[in-house]
Each structure stands twice: as C-alpha cells, then as structure tokens.
Design a protein around this nucleic acid. Structure first.
Lengths: 334, 334
DNA sequence: CTGAAAGCGCTAACAA
DNA sequence: TTGTTAGCGCTTTCAG
C-alpha cells in the first residue's frame, strides 16, 4: 500500500491524497471523503521516512533523552512535551542508553527530521567545540551544562540546578544538625559527570566548615544504580569506620545505601542521617522517607522549551538558567 | 552535506560512497580511505530516512514498548536487545506512552523500517482482528496476551506469566499463613487490563477457600501509579475496616500502599501482611522488603525473541508460552 | 572495482 | 480545485 495505490483506488491523483492526509485546504469535500474512505478501508498508513524526506521544512523540536528509564526525567519530559505543543511545534523524542552518544543521535535527528532545535536531557558535561560541529541548530542542555568541556557559553543554552552549591547545601544541612563525620556516596570523584560536580560541592563545604577531607569517607561506586549503591555501601560498611551521616549524590543511590545501613544494624536517622539530591517519587515512599534537595523538574522542562523557542523565533542569544532546589524534609535526618 | 557532496569531495561516485558507508566488499582500499577521510572531516552522517527508503529489505525487528519508563520493562528490554543481536538481527525500539496506540505505532514502523517482525511489550489485552489487519508481519506479545480480544491463538505468539494463577498463588500464600480478611488493591476489577485478570485470580482463590468476596475489601484506584495507590489506600483506610492482609496487583501499588499503612499506624507485617506481583528492583529496597511473586523478566525477553525468530525463519506456527513466577520472600508477610 | 541511473514513497511547486 | 512532475538522499541493479 503506497500513496499511489490509494490514489488509484480513490480515483484521484497522488497530490490530492497527500493534501487530504496533510489537512491542506483546497480539497473538495467529495474528494476528501473518497480518499478517507479508501484510507480507512485499507488501513493505510503513510511511510514516515518518505514523508520526512519529501518535506522541505518542519516544525520539529528534537528531544534526546540519555539514560533510559531514569525516573527522574519522566516529569521533565511531560513538561517539555506540553510546552512544545503549546508553542505550536512538534516534539520528536528519542531515548538512548547511557552507552550511546547523544550528539551523534542528535545530529542524525537533525537531518532526518529537519529539526529547528534540540533539547538534551541528561548528557555529558564535556562536549567539545569540535564534536558539536555536527549540530547546526540551536540546542539547550537540560539538567546539565558544559562544566568540563570547552564550549563557549554563548554557543548553547542550559537550564539546571547549581549542582556544586546544592551539594554544598546538603552538607551544610548536615553540619548544622551537628554532623562532622560526613561520608559521601558517589559514582566517581572525577568521572566528569554530575557526580564530580556534586563531589566538588561537598569538598568545598567541608573546607569552609574547617573539616579536613577524609578519603576513607568517600564511597565510590561504579554506576548510579540502586543495586551498586547497595553493594558498594555494604562493602564499605564492613570497614566499620566512624561516621554519623551520609550525603548521597542521588536519590537512587541513597535508597540503596539505606538498605545497606539497615542490614548492618545502623538505624536511620538515629544512628546515621542521610541526605541526597534529586527528589524522585520513589524516595518519598521509603521508610524512613528520604530527605533530599528536590530539583524543580517541571520548571526545568518549561524553561528549557522557553529558552529554545526564544532562540528559534527571535534569534535571541543563548542563556544559562540556574534554578533553585528545595529541601524536602523527610525522616532521614537527625 | 549529502552523499553527493561527499562523493564530489572524495572524487568518487555516490555508489562508491554508499558502498564504503555500508561496509560492502569490492571497494579498493584507496577509495575507501579517501571517502572515510572526507566523511570524517565533515562529520557527515547519512540521512536515515533516505536510507530506509532506498533499502529493499532489512534485518530489523521492531520492539514497541508501551508505558514509558516502567522500570519493570528495563530488564526485559536488555534481554530482548541482546538476543536480537545474537540472532543476527537489528533491534528497532520505540517507546510510547500509555495514551498512545501501540498498534498504530507498530504499523508505521513496519512500513518505515521494513520490519521482519514485532515484539509488543506491555500492550492492551483486547486487540481485535480488524485492528490487526494493519500489521502484516508476525508479532509476539510480551508480558501479556489477548485475554479480552478476539484474535485467533494461531495468529500471534505470546510469552507471559499466568496472571490469574499468580494472583491465586499470592492469595493462597496469605491464606496459608492464616489470613482470611484479604483486601485487594487494583486499578480496576473490570478495566480490561492485567489488573482485571489478576483480580479474577483473587476472586477464584477466595471462592476456593470458601471466603465470600467482600466488596468493601476491594480497593480500586485510577492508575497503576505509586502516588495514586498511596492516596487511594489512605482514603480507604479511613473506613477502618477489618482486614489482616493486602494483595496488591503490582509492586508499584504495594509500595504506595505500604506508606499509607505506615502513616495510619498499621505495621507491616505485624498488623498487616502485604504481597504483590512483579518483582521490580525498587520494591527490594523498601523497608520492610516487599514479598512478591517475581516475573522472570530476563527469560521473558529471551523467549519472546526466540518465538519471533522461529517464525521469521522457519515460518513456524505461533505459540503461547507461560512462564512460572517465583515467590521472593521479603519481610512483608506474617 | 567503479559509475550511471532507476527507483524507494512522499511533498510541493507549477500548470491547468 | 486538481493533476503532473521534479526532487528529497540514499541503495541497488546493471553495465563497464
């Protein structure tokens, strides 16, 4: 079934069919009905590839989400989709795994879908100018920024929290409640990911508070996964080190850690206080409820679209928006 | 940048470029090098739409995942991807929301990507023959089956657990531990989803055990979400009904329910036992750890690919595989 | 080993 | 309001 078959069956030309299918004006009611009848009867669905190819322009905005099934992104995506629609554009989303390269994906999309702009959700923090030459439309980084790359700030937009400062605040919260021996649970102190930025905030806070960094209280695991956080924490606890609080760089990792603590006889928050950053839904259903610095997910999505649309429409200059986090007081703090 | 530009720049013809890009043999080393150099220099990425269009056949197997970011699917997808690759095919995955129609998505993919077959992951249980005429390649339903539709069993394959029996087993487990007043938490007793099938298993078990169904112990909420389960449960608890156990039809819902119970002063498992079906990772990190009937996620993915590949290769007949669940003893049972 | 040319299915001028 | 036709960028015969 191609558009040609439909045209023949309906007794019209291919262009008429195309017009009907694309809601173009200037089609007689009668022709329209004939076409739709045939389309319906044969369950015809146009070939998207051919469609994209033939089109000379689009109203598409691409969204590349890295880190499949990260619950943290769900709300942001909803907000983004909503805003893109409201702004009169079409969202084209592509999810990829953490092992895939979001820039290559975006470059492909840009050509295939003739994108007007791109929103990256969860990407690397180290893009280089050279890599980004394959992207020829404006883009905004959502939830992250080019901390470790060499991009000019005027060449891209971003919306995120201040990860360094948020980590600082988390540690400060613990400090203010009397904690001095604060462990940090992360996926790498210099892995070039957001983990590193947050670690730097942790380190800065300790320094400000006059607490020397104790290498032994740095718990490094291989991923951001709950399972690895659990086993990593468990292993670390065997050393029986002295500490009264844990700052986990993500909710997910905190969840794994809390189970490990529980199983090692450490009560949260009586024996150990736990704080994290993110504010995903699941951590609100833990027992005890996790205390965490929430990222304003919905606002981030809204702002990302706003930034991009402004640039697309008015050729405005790129901007970098930092949104505040808010402490969600759970039950994991003493 | 099109293939033409590359050809011109490299001083060869477009077909040579195409050959290089597709790893075809019969290309001289020298030509290959010239082309690759240009490709690299200009960061050229071929247009996927054009590529798909031009191709006459493919080795693509489509995977349509409904219910974005359902953590339950992650492991299955990994297994599916792995097996498809090993079988020498290419996986083309598309994620859609629960509000989207997976059949339409699949039909589009079938044409766009010239699919050899399709795996549906999490779909409706009520496909009709008429709807499926738009699909012209073999397909297998993974984690579900056509319980409420009118498909011939010989027209599609499926791999799943026995939802009815699993629910039965869950209730039986509770019964064997002395529970007689067993509430059920579901998203609808006749919503035509897996919730209904599991409810039917619950009802069958009660009947077998000589326990009359108490409408008041049926807790119906609007979705499968953790938040709705929480608020729904909380509201239900206000009635202060007499019960000693809850069977939640999904882990997610059980997680919401457990928080509600906790906040209402009911201890799990001392006051109330909780059991569910699914076995997602998060529920293993709850406190107490959720007892649940685990679906064999990896096996399901492996089996789904096997079923499909068998049909694609040997034109074998369609089959329906039922995999067993296993009880993961947590701490939520007394 | 290489190139010319005919599609793939659709859209969008351009004519009528 | 309609139909004709030239691409869109790539793959793939078929000759050379």
């Amino acid at each position: 079934m191609t558009i040609k078959d439909i045209a023949r069956l309906a007794g019209v030309s291919v262009s008429t069919v195309s017009r009907v299918l694309n809601d173009h004006p200037d089609v007689s009611e009668i022709a329209k009905e004939k076409v739709l009848a045939v389309v319906d009867e044969y369950n015809y669905i146009p070939n998207t590839s051919a469609r994209e190819l033939g089109k000379s322009s689009s109203d598409n905005i691409g969204v590349v989400v890295r880190g499949m099934s990260n619950p943290f992104y769900t709300k942001i995506i909803t907000a983004i989709g909503d805003r893109i629609e409201k702004a009169g554009y079409t969202m084209v989303m592509q999810q990829i795994g953490t092992e895939d390269d979001e820039v290559i994906t975006a470059a492909k999309m840009e050509r295939d879908k003739r994108l007007l702009g791109i929103i990256f959700l969860g990407g690397r923090l180290n893009y280089t100018k050279d890599q980004m030459t394959s992207i020829n439309v404006p883009y905004v980084c959502c939830t992250f920024y080019n901390e470790y790359g060499n991009l000019d700030r005027s060449d891209y937009s971003s919306v995120s929290i201040d990860d360094n400062q948020s980590a600082y605040n988390a540690v400060e919260t613990l400090y203010n409640r009397g904690h001095r021996k604060i462990a940090v649970l992360l996926s790498g102190a210099k892995d070039g990911s957001v983990s590193q930025v947050r670690y730097e905030g942790y380190a800065r806070a300790l320094k400000d508070f006059g607490i020397p960094i104790d290498e032994k209280l740095i718990i490094e695991i291989d991923s951001y996964s709950i399972a690895d956080a659990y086993t990593g924490m468990k292993k670390w606890l065997k050393q029986n080190l002295d500490f009264t609080a844990v700052f986990a760089i993500s909710d997910n990792m905190a969840m794994g850690a809390m189970k490990a603590l529980r199983e090692c006889g450490k009560k949260v928050p009586e024996d150990v206080s736990v704080i994290a950053i993110d504010g995903i839904e699941a951590s609100e259903y833990m027992n005890p409820v996790l205390s965490t610095l929430c990222q304003p997910m919905e606002k981030m999505g809204i702002e990302a679209v706003k930034l991009l649309v402004d640039i697309i429409r008015d050729k405005n200059i790129h901007r970098h928006v930092i949104l505040p986090t808010s402490l969600r007081e759970g039950e994991s703090l003493k």
